[in-house]
Design a protein around this nucleic acid. Structure first.
Lengths: 158, 158
DNA sequence: GTTTTAGGTTGCAACTAAAAACTTATTTTT
DNA sequence: AAAAATAAGTTTTTAGTTGCAACCTAAAAC
């Protein structure tokens, strides 16, 4: 039980990334998240589907629950079973997960992922995740720059 | 020298995610990537900026170079120095990184990240990363479904 | 030519991950 | 009702990874 929750200390220099990595930076976390997005809800399902060691899965599920990415609830109909389901916070990780997955698909082995995330309305695959301007134009790295908060505020006042 | 390049074996069940995680699933990889995106190019810069141990940084830089996310080139003007710079493949990780960062910002401590990624044209911050339909409409989790490759092909033929 | 800087490597202690066997509570089967 | 099976963990042991601190080597500065 009393395992230390290791905090990564990535220097919280005004960036959401260290926070995100504290919750999702562990080796299996994204794979477990994917399983959850694919509808897997139970320990044994995930264990056999991912091939992860049982103790590690137990530990990671615990952390994901602690980070409020998953919610743990015992099933009322079968009291041996536990349901792990995505919270709103967990669902909000979908763009990050899909972006990573698409990157792996494009730059890795090139094998198309399965299943494919689609629009319910027309069952068409979703667009590639990219960076968009405030007005919706897609932007490339060359169209982008880093601006300091302070300059931003000044900018807005102009 | 001979450290084993550990392969994660996440079951390549037709998904780009395991591939992405093999390259980026290590503890510090995203922080190093962020440093690179922020213009840090040299070992000592990254080391003091991130506070990462030197051997780990050396190891991670090596792997990022091996994955062709960073490129390693000795500086011609000062032959002690090495420049690490993002490749196209590395730059393609920007949406995933920004998505994670925004998630950490929104669901973590709520502190706005700094610096902010902006459109060069108008210096306005970029949009939040989200999933978009083929026609550009933004989609929520409720608007989405997983469709099997095979069904997709059938669909396209209709 | 001594010192400083850049980019590492090495040795070692502490921690973390993984595989396999075990546990405990609940269902299902006989 | 007893025995077998299932779900979700825990424990044990072994192997591998992380991180600190000190060291090293080549090139540049003074």
């Amino acid at each position: 039980m009393g395992e230390l929750i290791e905090k990564l200390d990535l220097g919280d220099d005004e960036c959401g990334l260290p926070t995100a990595l504290a919750a999702m930076g562990e080796r299996w976390s994204f794979m477990i998240l994917r399983a959850a997005f694919n509808g897997l809800k139970h320990f044994e399902e995930m264990q056999s589907s991912l091939g992860i060691a049982r103790n590690i899965l137990a530990n990671r599920l615990g952390r994901l629950v602690e980070s409020e990415i998953l919610e743990r609830q015992p099933c009322p109909d079968d009291r041996r079973k536990i349901e792990y389901k995505l919270t709103e916070k967990g669902m909000a990780l979908l763009p990050a997960m899909i972006a990573l997955r698409q990157w792996g698909e494009r730059w890795g082995t090139g094998i198309p992922s399965n299943p494919v995330l689609c629009d319910k309305r027309d069952r068409h695959p979703v667009e590639d995740i990219r960076v968009h301007a405030h007005d919706g134009r897609p932007l490339d790295w060359h169209d982008l720059m880093w601006v300091d908060q302070s300059e931003l505020v000044a900018e807005a006042a102009e």
